[in-house]
């Protein structure tokens, strides 16, 4: 049975070849894997090797790697959000410096502003090349978490190509 899931925000496809209550065979990126469950709920390979596994809901910790799994395709491509260049504050803080002006064109990775939070300075950089379309805050203002700090409009594709 073919499935399309979302792993750590990325769409992936795989195929379940065989499954019962305790074991599974699946095909992922042209390779076939066989696993089974131990009594305590940890996973083991077909060579009976233990894989250290923890699970809480959709969050998994498997042999030291973190995974978040959603049993469906991504609702919307994450790239769509980035293309708009919306930049949200990662945490509550104060705007310390603004390096750009309205209408200014910025390159990918260019510093846009400095947010002070938890007494440390964090530089917010441009996730895309674009034009500054909105600057809702001034230096010294307090912002909450997940507040839009700056609006960037992506540069037209042909300009990017040059």
């Amino acid at each position: 049975m073919r499935k399309e899931w979302t792993v750590n925000g990325e769409p992936i496809q795989f195929e379940v070849l065989k499954q019962n209550a305790k074991s599974i065979s699946l095909k992922f990126k042209e390779k076939i894997y066989h696993y089974s469950l131990r009594e305590d709920g940890s996973l083991e390979t077909d060579q009976n090797e233990l894989i250290i596994s923890l699970r809480a809901g959709d969050d998994f910790l498997i042999d030291g790697e973190d995974f978040n799994l959603v049993r469906s395709k991504p609702a919307r491509l994450a790239a769509g959000k980035n293309a708009q260049g919306s930049l949200k504050s990662p945490m509550p803080g104060k705007i310390l410096k603004i390096f750009v002006e309205l209408g200014q064109e910025v390159d990918l990775g260019e510093p846009l502003l400095v947010l002070e939070a938890m007494k440390m300075e964090h530089t917010i950089k441009a996730p895309i090349a674009g034009t500054v379309k909105g600057l809702p805050f001034a230096v010294g203002e307090q912002v909450k978490s997940q507040t839009e700090l700056i609006q960037l409009q992506a540069l037209p594709a042909k300009e990017l190509a040059t």
Binding site: L26, K31, Y33, S53, R55, A56, G57, F67
Partner: peptide, 24 residues
């Protein structure tokens, strides 16, 4: 993460009951 690591996560998701906390 390697493909194998992802395959393990998928396997565990399918084998263990949904929305449950498992492991030690």
């Amino acid at each position: 993460p390697t493909d194998e690591a992802q395959a393990r996560a998928l396997a565990l998701a399918l084998l263990s009951p949904e929305q449950k906390t498992i492991g030690a």
